[in-house]
Design a binder for these strands. Structure first.
Lengths: 190, 190
DNA sequence: GTCTATAGCAGGATAGAC
DNA sequence: GTCTATCCTGCTATAGAC
């Protein structure tokens, strides 16, 4: 069977989060997984193929937890808050966002894996903002897509600020700023 | 004299922006600067020292243009908009923000160079938000520091989203969302 | 100050035995 | 399917001539 295959993928998932793509060396993957060179190149074409497989799995997990957070049982404005309130490891960074400044993000194989998930986020957030506007919880003068991208940017930018400062506080505070801004917009739009 | 020294620093500045720290190889710096190995290791202790020098210069430039943008001749709320409206190359990324997910950001020599500038940004933005509140242009219920970090995060996150999507639009739209949100908050706070 | 030559080491992939 | 041994390349730094 392919017990080593799974071990390799899991090790790659960890290392992609900890170090990113370029700094994820096959050697480190082998060490972390307990597999030998042969297993890696038997199951995968190479580093990029392994990373692609690992990223697909990571993406599936991220998408699932995102969709769960935006489950339409609560009012739209609460779902936006829930998105902001998603528990996140500010100092480790976003598993996908951290790849954004690597060369790998322009790779034709790897880019869609990351990009398609963000497109999904953007669409769902935009629809949710629009719904909140219909509910009278956000001003209709705002463009839904712009607010959606703004919220996604706050999360991604929060990671950046926290990593630079080596402190969780900037992330937490940026998120709190976003939530209180939403609330201030909300109370004035009725 | 040290004409090669300047050439090395300038090449490093370019490469740090294009590729980041880890991917900036001394060999590439030499090629781009036209200098030989000897010059590099004569003027600098090594790659890290060269990068530190280059980052200091980059940081000085960023600080100057930031301070110019927030010059207190205009009302505070306009200065916040001017900050958001700073011309930026969305697809190249922030010269400092792009380092946030590299190991180098935790380096005791390099981190302060980047971190101190962001601390400066945060302080100045916070003071500006507070001033806008006093002017009656933003709700006093908001915490100035949180809004300041939120704005900085939107810029940094905009870069991330644009790089992931390989498209300037997400950056532009996130910024537009922030500006219209500020305006919506502004018209309601008087 | 600047150059070329070279060293030591790690990244990424291949070969071939078991 | 999995292993170890090996290869080639490029990164970072040092040595020593000019």
């Amino acid at each position: 069977m392919s017990s080593k295959r799974e071990a390799l993928i899991n090790a790659a998932k960890d290392l992609l989060w900890e170090r990113g793509y370029e700094a994820m060396s096959p050697k480190a993957v082998l060490r972390a997984s307990g597999a030998g060179q042969g297993s890696l190149y038997h199951h995968f074409e190479g580093k990029r193929d392994l990373a692609a497989t690992a990223l697909e799995e990571i993406g599936a997990g991220l998408r699932e937890s995102f969709d769960k957070r935006l489950d339409p049982s609560k009012p739209a404005i609460k779902r936006l808050e829930a998105y902001l309130d998603t528990p996140r490891e500010a100092l480790k960074g976003c598993r996908f966002g951290r790849l954004s400044h690597e060369q790998a993000i322009a790779d034709p194989v790897l880019n869609p894996i990351v990009g398609d998930l963000f497109t999904h986020f953007e669409k769902r957030l935009t629809a949710t903002v629009r719904e909140a506007q219909k509910d009278g919880d956000l001003p209709t003068a705002l463009k839904a897509k712009e607010i959606a991208l703004m919220l996604a940017a706050i999360v991604q930018g929060g990671y950046v600020l926290s990593r630079i400062r080596q402190d969780e506080a900037p992330f937490t505070q940026a998120i709190r700023g976003a939530k209180s801004a939403l609330r201030a917009l909300s109370t004035n739009s009725t």
